[in-house]
């Protein structure tokens, strides 16, 4: 199995992923939200969406995506109810009613500081604990005075996808200015095979240059190689993808720098989005 090398390059990222709100004990696992349709029509159409963390893209065989930070918003920015929400062993699933025309964003996002250290007895400590929410105000008190090798990082994480009723709209897909996120110069629900899409990664509202991106198409179970495509963003955080095959794609980006507010010394972001590319 090919392991995402970009994760290994940054040991801290692995630690941060472990400690993030979505509990993902093994960092090679991939988090995703999978809509059964992305292009919808009719009177208040409904769509069903799965969320999971797994090795194989879009095969729910490891752990359900936690639903507590999961939100859906319509094009007016209003939060939309996750209907028939169910979290099983392997996946979380829910339905959305697209009562208003336009593009909906479904996302799980978190941002906050993560501390790791070594206690005087040699054991390791971390804050927040596994599965716990961020609490930046409490982080200094959480680290013992005699702790060694203290590393505090500002970690952001976003997992998202988009669905559209009728014509795609721009309002919901705009970046929030927090964490690692994507500016869609090509609309995420208007991707077609044979065309080139323009994307731009931002970290806390600024272009994320030299971010590492991997792209994997669904159906990896039925081929021998992952066939992942790698990209690195330019100085403006931009990269482009030329689609050569229609299908459902999982795109993940990771970014790190040392420009973090104290007491953090590093800033890391991870971003994952599910994109559907339609045949011409």
């Amino acid at each position: 199995m090919k392991i995402n090398t970009s994760v290994f390059k940054h040991g801290l990222l692995a630690a941060a992923v472990c400690a993030s709100v979505i509990s993902a004990p093994a960092f090679a696992h991939r988090a995703w939200l999978l809509p059964q349709s992305t292009v919808l029509a009719g009177d208040e159409p409904m769509v069903t969406i799965d969320g999971a963390i797994s090795n194989s893209i879009f095969i729910a065989d490891y752990h359900a995506l936690r639903s507590d930070s999961l939100e859906a918003h319509n094009n007016q920015g209003a939060q939309v109810e996750l209907q028939n929400l169910h979290t099983g062993r392997f996946r979380t699933s829910f339905d959305l009613t697209l009562a208003e025309p336009g593009t909906y964003r479904i996302a799980s996002a978190s941002r906050g500081m993560t501390a790791r250290w070594q206690n005087s007895d040699g054991s390791r400590g971390m804050f927040p604990g596994r599965g716990q929410p961020h609490n930046d105000a409490a982080i200094s008190d959480a680290v013992p005075d005699d702790a060694e090798n203290v590393q505090i990082g500002l970690m952001s994480r976003r997992i998202e996808t988009f669905v559209t009723a009728g014509a795609p709209t721009q309002q919901t897909i705009a970046p929030t200015g927090e964490g690692l996120e994507m500016v869609f110069h090509t609309h995420p629900n208007d991707l077609f095979n044979g065309e080139t899409a323009q994307f731009q990664l931002m970290i806390d509202g600024e272009p994320a240059s030299a971010a590492e991106v991997i792209l994997i198409k669904d159906g990896a179970r039925y081929r021998n190689q992952q066939e992942e495509t790698e990209f690195t963003t330019d100085s403006e955080g931009r990269f482009e993808v030329q689609w050569t095959e229609p299908g459902m794609y999982w795109l993940e980006a990771s970014y790190q720098d040392e420009r973090a507010p104290a007491p953090a010394t590093s800033r890391r972001g991870s971003y994952a989005v599910t994109l559907e590319v339609l045949p011409e």
Partner: peptide, 17 residues
């Protein structure tokens, strides 16, 4: 009823787009 027939119009992919 309820414009249910509209639901499958995106299957006319190019025209829909």
């Amino acid at each position: 009823a309820n414009q249910e027939g509209h639901k499958w119009l995106p299957d006319l992919r190019q025209w829909w787009r």
